[in-house]
Amino acid sequence: MKQYGMIINLDRCVGCHACAVACRAEWQVPTREGYRRNWVHRLGPANTSHGMSFTFYPGLCNHCDSPACVPVCPADTVEMTFRDPESGKTKTMEVAATWKDPFNGTVQIDQSRCLGCGACRDACPYGARYVNTEVANEDIGGEGIADKCTFCMPRVEKGLAPACVQTCITDARIFGVVNDPKSEVAAYIRKGARRLESAAVRIGPNVYYFGKPRDLELLDRTSTPQEMPEAADRRRMLASLMQPAMRRMQTAGLLGLAGAMAVQGLAAEEDE
């Protein structure tokens, strides 16, 4: 499997926020509190053991090796066939409304099946997801739609760079294949680019940061998650409530998820 990843070179980054804004423009991300696929946090100036640092945390979804957000999705699973455009190979898997792509390693969302329950958002130690409650898949009882960085797969598939990489005014962001030793990304990893991981959070993020020891120390101190979050009880309850209805409908045949939700509503009315 190929794994896409990104290098952020803090020696080049000046914290101009072009990445965050270009992402918002490209994917029409609303500006409500916490709604973003891509962000820049300004860190310092603060003292470190290597001297003073004024650096930045340009963040986005890490498309982790073992994403915490994927297994918590309560949406009913569907069988999905993935195809590797390079080899033509296919792979069929059962996936919920979010999954890790078996050929490029990106974590994706089928927004048309998202319930907006927020379990994935809560599970991510990096805060990479948000739930847009301005929209919802009402037909399946959704209360919002989860969103996050896709590594700009629709652009990458057309041969374009991710929007944040394209606009980066100092070429501080490098997108590529982590596990291809010939890639620039891999070269940076060999040079010491590092992941934001701690003893308790080791899920294999694929965004790597390169920079001076003082800047990496400040980044690590302020931005590396120190514990795996627990999905909130409400989400878990919601997820467990959803499950029986889905299973019920699975047995009902070919109506589809939407049909399942419609019937669930019907059942509720009949109970009255």
């Binding site: 569907v78 399942a260 939700m261």
Partner: peptide, 30 residues
């Protein structure tokens, strides 16, 4: 109506391929 939307979505090339449960969209959804 919901079923029809689900069927239409499945033919519109959404991810999902041959899954049993098709992606569903209501008319008002983005």
């Amino acid at each position: 109506t919901a079923t029809a939307v689900a069927m239409a979505a499945s033919t519109a090339g959404l991810p999902g391929g041959k899954g049993l449960f098709r992606a569903a969209r209501a008319g008002t959804l983005p």
